[in-house]
Design a protein around this nucleic acid. Structure first.
Lengths: 211, 211
DNA sequence: TATAACGTGAACACCGCTGTTCGACTTAGC
DNA sequence: GCTAAGTCGAACAGCGGTGTTCACGTTATA
C-alpha cells in the first residue's frame, strides 16, 4: 500500500504535508484511477474535476501527466493485490482458478484501460515492474496445475496466462456491449478457461453453475 | 467491393472522376487502413503522407476524418471477406474452425485497431452494419458445430464467437510483446479455442501441430 | 492544344490539452 | 492569532490536430 506516493521526483517528498494536501492527493489519485479506468485518454482537467479539485492544485502535487498515471496505476495494483490476497489459491488448481476468476474478473478491465494509459506515458521497464507482482500469482497457479496434471502442458505458461486475462477482459467488453449480464460473467469465463486449460485427451470438467 | 466509395455525402459523387483522382483516393484509403490499423489515433497528416499525397488533397476527397475512417474500415472488411471467401467452412466443424483460424488470425488485429478508431468517429449503427457480414460467417459455423455435437451448447453463441476473436486478437498482442512467434500463433489459437469449445464431459481433441 | 479537373504548399482560424505563473483567498497547525 | 502551506481561477505560451481558403503549378482528356 501507499506505493503510489513519493515514487520518483514527484512533489510528494518525504517532508510532512498538511492534512488537506494529503486529502487532495488521495482524491486526485482515486479520481485518476476511475477516469483512466474508463477512458485511457482522460484529460487532467477531467481528473481534477472528478476529484473535486482545481486543475492548478493537481499540478501542485504532480509534475506531469505521467506521474498521475503512475500513481493511479500503482494504486489500482495495490487495491487489486489486496483483493487477491484474500483468495485461497491452494487445493485443486481447477477450483483455485475458479475462485481466482470469481474474485478478479471485474478488476481486469479497469486494469486494462489503465494499462493502455500507462503504455503511452510510462517507460516499458516501469510497466513490467508494476505488472510483475500480479502476474507472478497467476503464473504460479498455472504452473502448479500443470505439474499436478490438471492443466495442459502442450502450450506455454505465458500463453495460458494471456488467455486467462484476455477472456476475463473480453467479458467486461461483452457486458458493456449488452451481450452479457454481470451475473453470468464469472461462470462463462470459468467454463471457457477451464476447458481451454484441459489437457488434450482428457474430458472437459463440468462446471455446473455453482462455484 | 468498392463499398468504401460514395457511401454518404462524401465528395465522391457518382460523377465521373479523373483517373489520377481515383488513384489518389485509392492510395489514401489504403494508407488509412494501414495507419489506423497500427494506430487508431493516426492523424490525417500521417495518412496523407503515407499515401504520398498532400494533406489538402485528402480534404479534397473526404469531408471529414470520419469519412476516411469509414472508407478504411469498409476496405478492410472487403479485403477480409475476400480472403475468408476462399476458406472451406464445410465438413467437420473442428477442422473448419482450424482452417478459419489459420486463414484469418492475422487479419483480426488490424480489424481491431481499425474498430477502435471507428468506435470514436462513427455512429454505433454504422459499425454494426459493417460488422454484420463477417460476424455472420463465424456464427453460422459455430451454430453448425453445436447442432452436430462437436461444440458445447452450455454457453451462448455470441460468447463463443467473442472468445474466438478475442483469443485471435490476443495472439497478435503476444507477438508484438515478443512472447510468441508468428509461426506458432495459429496452432496455439486453434488448440486453445478447440478446447474451449469442447462440450463438457467430452475429451479435448488432440491438435498435433499439422492442421 | 485548350481547358477543366486535379495536386500542392503556405497560411489561416479554431479547438483542446499541457504545463506554468500570478495574485488573492482560505485553512491547518503551532 | 499568526504564519506558512494549501487552494483557486484567470490567464499565459506552446503544441498538435482539424478543417478551410488561396494562388499557382501539373496533368488528364476531349
Amino acid at each position: 500500500m501507499l506505493g503510489y506516493c513519493g515514487r520518483m521526483g514527484s512533489k510528494n517528498s518525504t517532508a510532512t504535508k498538511r492534512a488537506d494536501a494529503l486529502r487532495s492527493i488521495d482524491a486526485i489519485v482515486q479520481a485518476a484511477a476511475e477516469c483512466l479506468g474508463k477512458n485511457p485518454e482522460a484529460s487532467l482537467s477531467e481528473i481534477a474535476r472528478a476529484a473535486g479539485v482545481g486543475r492548478v492544485t493537481l499540478y501542485a502535487h504532480f509534475n506531469s501527466r505521467a506521474e498521475v498515471v503512475d500513481a493511479a496505476m500503482s494504486r489500482a495494483i495495490d487495491r487489486g493485490n489486496e483483493v487477491l490476497d484474500t483468495v485461497d489459491l491452494t487445493g485443486d488448481p481447477r477450483l483455485a482458478l475458479a475462485r481466482y476468476i470469481e474474485a478478479g474478473w471485474h478488476l481486469v478491465d479497469q486494469a486494462r484501460a489503465l494499462l493502455a494509459a500507462a503504455q503511452r506515458e510510462l517507460p516499458a521497464g516501469r510497466i513490467r515492474e508494476l505488472h510483475a507482482g500480479p502476474a507472478a500469482r497467476v503464473e504460479t497457479l498455472v504452473a502448479r496445475g500443470r505439474a499436478e496434471g490438471a492443466f495442459r502442458t502442450d502450450l506455454p505458461i505465458a500463453w495460458m496466462v494471456n488467455v486467462l486475462h484476455t477472456v476475463m477482459h473480453s467479458a467486461t467488453e461483452e457486458i458493456r456491449a449488452g451481450r452479457l449480464t454481470p451475473d453470468h460473467a464469472a461462470d462463462h469465463i470459468t467454463a471457457t478457461v477451464l476447458a481451454a486449460f484441459t489437457p488434450p485427451g482428457t474430458p472437459v470438467p463440468e462446471t455446473g453453475g455453482g462455484a
